[in-house]
Nucleic acid binder design. Sequence first.
DNA 1: TTGACAAACCTCGGTCATCTATGTATATTA
DNA 2: TAATATACATAGATGACCGAGGTTTGTCAA
Lengths: 112, 112
Amino acid sequence: MKIDKSLMTGSTTLMVLSLLSRKEMYGYQMITELARRSDHTFELKEGTLYPILHTLEADGLVTVREKEAETGRVRKYYRITRKGLKVLEEKKVEWNTFTEKVNAVVCGTSPA
Amino acid sequence: MKIDKSLMTGSTTLMVLSLLSRKEMYGYQMITELARRSDHTFELKEGTLYPILHTLEADGLVTVREKEAETGRVRKYYRITRKGLKVLEEKKVEWNTFTEKVNAVVCGTSPA
DNA sequence: TTGACAAACCTCGGTCATCTATGTATATTA
DNA sequence: TAATATACATAGATGACCGAGGTTTGTCAA
């Protein structure tokens, strides 16, 4: 199913950091991996991801290193930092709170 | 806790329609009701809500009628239409899919 | 009675996240 | 050798939400 893009807003960084918390990855790989893990619900555009990665790096949440692939191509591998892990944990809590509260409103668990 | 506003994007209309699916309400009331039901996680601004209500009306998802309150003030009560209920159901499905897929990525339920 | 405040509505301009479109370069495959 | 996939990048457009301002009406205390 197609998801309204506006829902994505704000959760992209959470997902990117989540991916990186498992292993270092390069940009293009994150896009395909994100699509795979979400059953192609999220098909992040390059124009979205690369600026995000640059921002994360500038904020010290990830580091980059260039590494030559078996193919001979040079890729930029991103690795999450300690600070990045901390931010990730915060964002996870924020995400859980957010969804919980939306569900409270939508499902009407609170009295009328 | 404070939630990053960007997360809100896209879920606001879902929540507004959800509120209206229970009973007709006026704008100001929706703001206080939304805050109450979400434990003040969502404090929707008037500058956000009123334009949304106008759009919903233009799209035929809600209807408006003016009604005098006990206080003597005239309020604009919004009522969800059949079309609005249909859209609401669609948005609920979309919301559930969205959160499910984000969790799949974040919690890593899918193989590495 | 007047001044402050809450209720109730509204709009304009800005911000920020994401997308579209485009560009570059290299490796693979037809 | 031409097309396609890989891999990175940026500039401008879009769109949701907010901030800041404004208006009117009712209530309540000084």
